Amino acid sequence: MFGPEGPTLRELAVQALSSVERGYDLLAPKFDHTPFRTPDHVLDAVAEALAPLGPFTDGLDLCCGTGAGMRPLARLCRHSVTGVDFSAGMLDVARRRVPPAEAPRVAWVRGDARALPFTAAFDLVVSFGAFGHFLPGELPRLFAGVRAALRPGGRFAFPVFAPPRPTSPAFWLLSGFDTVMRVRNALWRPPFVMYYRALRLGALLGELERAGFTVELRALPGFGRRADGSPRGRLVVARNDGPPGPAVTPRRAG
Rank of each mutant, 00 (worst) to 15 (best):
F56M: 13
L217I: 07
P246I: 07
R210S: 15
P136H: 04
G89Y: 04
L187I: 01
L50T: 02
F161T: 14
G212S: 10
R147E: 00
G65H: 07
A115Q: 07
R151L: 10
D228R: 10
T66F: 13
P39D: 07
L204S: 12
F118G: 02
S87M: 01
Y195W: 08
A94F: 06
A45H: 04
A16N: 08
A186N: 12
G233M: 09
P244V: 07
Y195T: 10
R239P: 02
R182W: 15
F192N: 12
P152M: 01
V93E: 12
S19T: 02
L116D: 00
A227E: 15
R184M: 14
L9W: 03
L73M: 10
G212R: 08
S18G: 10
F122T: 02
Y196T: 12
L201A: 10
S18W: 02
F213E: 03
V248K: 11
R200N: 00
A198G: 14
T57E: 15
S18F: 01
A68G: 12
R78N: 13
T8Q: 07
L199R: 03
R239N: 03
P55L: 02
A28M: 04
R71E: 14
R151V: 06
W108F: 15
A130W: 01
G67R: 05
E207I: 06
L174K: 11
P243G: 08
L142A: 09
V237N: 01
G245H: 01
S87G: 02
T179Q: 08
L27R: 01
V193S: 13
R225K: 06
A211H: 04
L135Q: 15
L124R: 09
F192G: 09
V93A: 10
A149Y: 03
E209I: 09
L201Q: 13
A203C: 00
D44R: 15
P159H: 03
R37D: 03
R96W: 07
D40G: 13
R155S: 01
Y24I: 05
R182L: 13
P166F: 08
T214C: 07
M70D: 07
G233K: 09
C63W: 04
P163E: 14
V98P: 02
R147Q: 05
F177W: 15
G6K: 09
L174M: 15
G54I: 03
G69M: 10
F86L: 00
V183K: 05
T119V: 06
P39G: 06
P221M: 09
F158S: 11
L60W: 00
P99H: 06
D92W: 06
F134P: 02
P55C: 04
T34V: 09
T82G: 01
